[in-house]
């Protein structure tokens, strides 16, 4: 890639002030560095991933509001986790985490267990239990 070809493509995602270093050739064929603040294919791929994530979060939110799943399922999606990852964060087996995602089991969780989940999700225990914030 030549120096004057470095892409500066914008995206609808909020990338903040991030710039990437690109290694490019100058007019004499020497390698040098040039800043890029985005490239179309990368933007498309990233937008696609976030669209997928947001769809999952929204679908799970609906299920939590309808009482099919406990709030843990929602915050799991929100934090881009999966069950094996969350299980290792709270020091439980995967089947236990799956169980905690059932609303009736979730109600019986101890305070310590709730605190563990709240810590991992970076929220308070009240926010975790109180799912009124999930109703829009």
């Amino acid at each position: 890639m030549k120096k004057n070809e470095v892409p500066q493509d914008i995206t609808k995602l909020d990338k903040g002030p991030m710039n990437w270093v690109n290694y490019v050739t100058d007019e004499n064929g020497n390698y040098t560095k040039e800043i890029s603040n985005g490239w179309e294919p990368e933007n498309i791929a990233l937008e696609q991933v976030w669209e997928d994530v947001n769809n999952n979060v929204e679908a799970t939110r609906q299920k939590v509001v309808n009482g099919e799943l406990s709030p843990i399922a929602y915050y799991l999606e929100k934090n881009l986790m999966d069950i094996p990852l969350l299980a290792s964060y709270v020091d439980k087996w995967q089947w236990q985490v799956k169980r905690h995602m059932k609303p009736e089991i979730f109600k019986t969780l101890s305070k310590e267990m709730l605190e563990k989940y709240a810590f991992v999700f970076k929220i308070s225990v009240e926010d975790l239990i109180n799912n009124s914030s999930l109703r829009k």
């Binding site: 990437w20 690109n22 490239w39 990368e42 791929a45």
Partner: peptide, 8 residues
Amino acid sequence: EEIGTGGA
């Protein structure tokens, strides 16, 4: 792309 490799 993996963070600024110039897409290559």
